[in-house]
């Protein structure tokens, strides 16, 4: 298990309470699971993603992640329509463990209200919260 100071929490993305991340890429928002979550879950063996065209409000369950240890739901950090899903995770769910912020992304969202990004935590805020919980 990583120590808090070993966690990779890049500064160019925002973090939700449940350890989803969101990154603004042009006019879409890419979403995934952060380093803390993948480390806690252990080897991820299956990721159940939504369909392109599905829409979710902010905070609604949009994906399920299955690790050797547990099954957890993921909540969409920013509401909107799913416009892309990472199909590579079907064959290689371990990408979420190896590279949670790049190859291990989950979905792209066309946000209905881009300002919802502002409600999410910065990496510094996320780190503070983790330190507080430890």
């Amino acid at each position: 298990m990583k120590e808090i100071n070993e966690l990779n929490l890049p500064g160019d993305i925002r973090y939700a309470e449940d350890h989803e991340w969101a990154r603004l890429e042009g006019d879409r928002i890419r979403v995934g699971l952060d380093d803390y979550a993948q480390d806690q879950l252990g080897d991820i063996v299956f990721v159940e993603l939504p369909q392109i065209g599905d829409t979710f409000e902010k905070g609604k369950e949009f994906a399920t992640v299955e690790s050797v240890k547990a099954v957890v739901e993921c909540y969409l950090p920013v509401g909107g329509e799913i416009i892309a899903v990472n199909t590579a995770l079907e064959e290689s769910p371990e990408l979420v463990n190896k590279n949670p912020y790049n190859d291990g992304w989950f979905v792209d969202v066309n946000p209905s209200d881009p300002s919802e990004m502002d409600d999410l935590m910065t990496n510094a805020e996320c780190l503070e919260k983790l330190k507080g919980a430890d």
Partner: peptide, 20 residues
């Protein structure tokens, strides 16, 4: 990754991961 198991602190998995 150590966890409590009964009265003991035991390894849940090592860095190779449970799958390997």
């Amino acid at each position: 990754n150590m966890v409590s198991f009964g009265e003991y602190e035991m390894p849940l998995w090592y860095p190779a991961g449970a799958k390997k």
